[in-house]
Design a protein around this nucleic acid. Structure first.
Length: 485
RNA sequence: GGCCCGAUGGUCAAGCGGCUAAGACACCGCCCUUUCACGGCGGAAACACGGGUUCGAUUCCCGUUCGGGUCACCA
């Protein structure tokens, strides 16, 4: 039988990295086993609908490279792929369960349920099964009166339910722990719990992959499959992704931990491939040491047995490292293009040789958002203090800097060609002539040209990018500043 | 609170009865160097605890502790 997995997000308006990782693993399981990956939209909660939320799902998956084989946008033979469009098919299944005495109509009001909860000191009290054994005449009377009702699953009172999970192994739960959960809501829509089972079965899903928060409700699903006499899918529950709190404790990754949706992460300067690579390794490890994987390579190497059981803390540091690796692996041209929006942000008024800018930046960029502050000095020389000319390692002081800078200006002015090599040879030659270390000759020039203690690239690269006129103007300005008392 | 799951350095993680317990990120030091990076080399850092089983437990079993999840007309 062909392996089929599904990603079934509800359109909430953003794609949490936990969801994205679930989608990724679902994709990887399907593709590594030669199967199909299905996208299904779970919008049974009509009150929580968010405008444009489905587009975010499409965009994220597209940017992440997770191509689905079937879905609302591309169709497929198991459609429709949006639950609200499948609404009519759930009730007959629920009624079938009622006939089989595996479900029942419950006429309890929301108010009664609420007060039930409030008046109990047991946090896990739950529904009291008030309507579980209503006499047939009573049911008919309520129905005739048009009393709204929900359909609940009739859990066995005794015994236990056992299931196999591909990562957690055998899990067994006493049936007495199981609530008579709602299958069909008063508005006629199925709950997630019910729709999931029906959809997964009717769509021929073979591997149900989801976060481990569903582990404890899985017995209820199993009972549903058994009631219908359906084959039970392979369950693959994934460890949760956690975030570190300020006090050092950890909890489920959420907004307070920083950027947690794919969009936020991209906005924060991370590359989609780096994000995918990183989250693939959050909860899964290959047999060897390998860390760098393209999506295709992940497909080749992915194995369910490599999935870990314990929750993993999301580490922005490591993500940044991955991002830096991906940036370094690009060609300069590619990097220049990727970084262009950030270049433009820092240098809106000028045309520079962007590939040259990219080349000095590429090796030292881990996050695209760090770029603007690094190159703002190209746009305009910042105000700076002349103390910047003092540097112990380069052996520059306020006393020798003016002379050094003056000599630099004179040497540079005599240059017939203004390009990287000429500037380089000129400045190196100057250092030799003055019998000082290269750094001693370079430091005052770089400071005067940039006004910054730390810059991407050295004096040579900066002068080259700045161009002759602008460079010399800045050097003169620096010299003037040094000579003022 | 009941139930379920988990536990190797700060973080991600190899390990699946016998190892000086890998590796990566972060951190520290040194080297390289035209600042900062990059790169190279080195360092510090872990099997939660207590019982078993065994010739031998990080590894298997049982407790304890700690962490997480779950108990909705949300998904």
């Amino acid at each position: 039988m062909k392996v089929r997995t599904r990603f079934a997000p509800s359109p909430t308006g953003f794609m949490h990295v936990g969801n994205l990782r679930t989608a990724l693993y679902e994709y990887l399981i399907a593709k590594s086993l030669g199967g199909d990956f299905v996208l299904r939209i779970e919008d049974t909660d009509q009150e929580r609908k968010v405008e444009g939320a489905v587009d975010i799902i499409y965009n994220t998956m597209k940017e992440a490279g997770l191509k689905h084989d079937e879905g609302p946008d591309i169709g497929g033979e198991y459609g429709p792929y949006v639950q609200s469009e499948r609404k009519d098919m759930y009730i007959p299944y629920a009624e079938e369960l009622i006939k089989k005495d595996k479900a029942y109509r419950c006429f309890c009001t929301k108010e009664r349920l609420d007060s039930l909860r409030e008046n109990s000191d047991d946090p896990g009290a739950g529904y009291d099964r008030h309507c579980r054994d209503l006499p047939q005449e009573e049911i008919q009377r309520l129905l005739d009166e048009g009393t709204p009702y929900v359909i609940r699953q009739k859990m066995p009172l005794e015994g236990s339910t056992t299931f196999e999970d591909a990562v957690y192994g055998t899990i067994s739960v006493d049936n007495s722990e199981l609530q008579d959960q709602i299958l069909i809501k008063a508005d006629g829509f199925p709950t997630y719990n019910f729709a999931n089972v029906i959809d997964d079965h009717t769509m021929n899903i073979t591997h149900v992959v989801r976060g481990s928060e569903y582990l404890s409700s899985t017995p209820k699903y199993n009972l549903l499959y058994e009631s219908f006499g359906w084959d039970i899918p392979v369950y693959v529950h994934l460890p949760l992704i956690m975030g570190k709190n300020d006090d050092g404790s950890i909890s489920k990754l959420s907004k307070r931990h920083g950027a947690t949706s794919f969009e936020d992460l991209v906005k924060a300067g991370f590359l989609p491939q780096a994000i995918i690579n990183y989250i693939a390794l959050l909860g899964w490890a290959p047999k060897d040491n390998r860390e760098m994987f393209t999506l295709e390579e992940l497909v080749e190497n992915f194995e369910i047995s490599g999935i870990s059981k314990s929750p993993a803390v999301f580490d922005y540091n490591k993500l940044e490292w991955f991002n830096g690796e991906y940036i370094k692996a690009m060609s300069v041209e590619e990097f220049a293009e990727t970084a262009m929006p950030y270049f433009r942000k820092a240098v809106p008024d000028k045309e520079l040789d962007w590939v040259k800018v990219a080349s000095i930046l590429q090796q030292r960029t881990t996050k695209l958002t760090d770029i603007p502050e690094k190159i703002g000095f190209f746009n305009a020389l910042p105000e700076y203090d002349k103390e910047l000319f003092v540097n112990k390692k380069s052996k520059t002081t306020l006393e020798n800097a003016p002379g050094l800078l003056k000599a630099g200006i004179e040497a540079l002015e005599s240059l017939s060609k203004w390009d990287h090599d000429s500037i380089h040879d000129c400045l190196i030659g100057l250092a030799q002539k003055l019998e000082v270390k290269n750094g001693t000759a370079m430091w005052p020039v770089r400071i005067a040209a940039s006004g910054m203690a730390v810059t991407p690239g050295g004096a040579v690269e900066i002068l080259d990018i700045l161009g002759r006129d602008e460079s010399l103007a800045r050097l003169y300005k620096g010299l003037q500043m040094l000579q003022e008392q």
